[in-house]
Design a protein around this nucleic acid. Structure first.
Length: 462
DNA sequence: TCTGGGGTCCTAGGACCC
DNA sequence: TCTGGGGTCCTAGGACCC
């Protein structure tokens, strides 16, 4: 049996933890640069605010309506969701954090009884259930026990962290996702919905619109609808060969298999990232190369930090730059190039240097740049011996590693970019100090405080 | 004035090799 | 008319996820 725990309206719920006065009110959270709406509370959804709405249109579209607006505050969301994961770790034998707001759980050996029950829809209790519950190990779990377990997990997370989660339980991940949607939608499930019989599976699929199935995106949904599949059940009823021939794609065949009860989508919990990207759109535009170099250095440094966090090294560093595609009146340019490193590394200094070399190749004076980013690729596990005889000697490598460790530790404690690589991560040439360069880069006018991670933001009670 | 930031995987087709 | 066959690697493009 698989489970998924999904945070309801994650970013909005995090903002509410320290703002209980906003309970029951419409809330939206904006993307970086306060660009567009990326998260909505239930009340904001009911008002008709769509995901992706540009912030500047909100006032026009919803005149005179009170909406609480927040800039995204990933420091806060990361910390609070981390607390949820640490509870899940205590409650399940195995789990896999799938995204900031979703966590898959493995509940081994729960047998999926494909009972072809008739329409009584009994969310059944078998005769041996109390015994199984008494044994109480996850290896003898029974579904009635699992239902209670899920409801209790919701309660515990709500009580200890203050965030609402919905739980879906099913024989595979695709069905678990559908179950969690049901749990979210209908209060009668008490935040935990389980699909453990064929009857319940069909009922759930009949309820689920095809475009809401995990793995069916906009394109596939449009195609399926045009072929007469309105619900997940319509699709599941087709023959496997039809799916193969219509789409010629293994992923959608796997989705079809899962809708029919098989466990077909591979688990990837052990996978480390194969590429890592750090990119940003700017607040305004940048035409000056020194300023762009500053940002590229920061993104490269951030990529190096992410590599070290997962104990990997990269062989290739890529950089892209973009002008603003929305400004049809301005000259457009975009380019991406990459550079292979002599020695795979996760050290900040060589990665920043490589990124700057690439920038030198692709930067053209005269354009107004809106977005830029650094991607590191060719990622492999970090092992003690990575040296190339023609590159750096062992002593230099050791020194750089110690330097990286110190930088990571300080930036973790005091916020990233506390320590940066001087002349490269920011520059004096343009007359701007570090703080100014960063402050101008990204807009976040409605950022909440960080009472869980910063002493200066701690809440005072009077 | 103002439009996010990450990721993964699959397939087709071309280059190249023997 | 007609041009070997098989394998690997790489890239571009197109899907998908949150």
């Amino acid at each position: 049996m698989y489970g998924i725990a999904d945070l309801d309206n994650c970013y909005c719920s995090c903002e509410k933890v320290f703002r209980p006065d906003l309970e029951g009110k419409p809330i939206v959270v904006l993307s970086n640069n306060d660009g567009c709406v990326v998260a909505r509370s239930n009340e904001a959804k009911k008002m008709g605010i769509k995901e992706g709405t540009p912030y500047f249109q909100l006032a026009e579209l919803f005149p005179g309506q009170k909406i609480a607006v927040f800039s995204s505050n990933y420091e806060l969301y990361g910390e609070l969701t981390g607390r949820v994961v640490s509870i899940i770790r205590q409650e399940t034998p195995a789990y896999f954090r799938y995204s900031i707001d979703e966590c898959f759980m493995y509940l081994p050996n729960e047998e999926y009884r494909m009972k072809n029950e008739e329409s009584d829809g009994s969310w059944d209790v078998d005769s041996d259930s109390s015994e199984a519950a008494a044994n109480s190990s996850f290896f003898t779990l029974h579904s009635s026990f699992l239902q209670t377990w899920g409801e209790n997990l919701h309660k515990r997370v709500k009580r200890e962290v203050g965030l609402p989660i919905s739980i879906g339980l099913a024989p595979n991940k695709t069905l678990a996702k559908i179950a969690s949607k049901l749990a979210k939608k209908y209060a009668a499930y008490k935040h935990c919905c389980m699909i453990d019989t064929d009857y319940k599976r069909e009922k759930a699929l009949e309820w689920c619109p095809i475009e809401d199935v995990w793995g069916i995106g906009r394109r596939y949904a449009a195609k399926l609808q045009s072929l007469g599949c309105k619900t997940a059940l319509d699709f599941a009823k087709h023959h496997k060969d039809w799916v193969r021939q219509t789409f010629n794609n293994i992923n959608i065949v796997r989705t079809w298999q899962e809708l029919n009860g098989e466990d077909a989508v591979p688990n990837e919990e052990l996978a480390k990232k194969k590429s890592i990207c750090t990119s940003r759109s700017f607040n305004g535009m940048i035409s000056d190369k020194d300023t762009l170099r500053t940002h590229i250095a920061n993104y490269a440094a951030r990529c190096a930090e992410k590599l070290r966090m997962q104990q990997t090294v990269a062989t290739t560093v890529g950089v892209f730059v973009n002008t603003n595609a929305f400004r049809e009146d301005l000259a457009q340019y975009w380019n991406f190039q990459e550079l292979r490193l002599v020695t795979p590394t996760s050290s900040t200094i060589p990665i920043v240097q490589a990124a700057h070399d690439v920038l030198d190749r692709i930067f053209i004076q005269g354009y107004q740049y809106k977005k830029a980013g650094v991607i590191v690729m060719g990622i492999s596990p970090d092992s003690p011996i990575q040296q190339d005889l023609f590159d750096l000697n062992a002593e230099q490598i050791q020194k750089m590693r110690r330097l990286d460790e110190v930088i990571d530790r300080i930036n973790r404690m005091h916020g990233s970019e506390t320590i940066v690589i001087g002349a490269q991560q920011y520059t004096q040439k343009n007359g701007k100090g570090k703080a100014e360069v960063f402050a101008n880069a990204i807009k976040h006018d409605f950022r909440s405080k960080n009472p869980t991670t910063r002493w200066s933001d701690i809440i005072k009670l009077r």
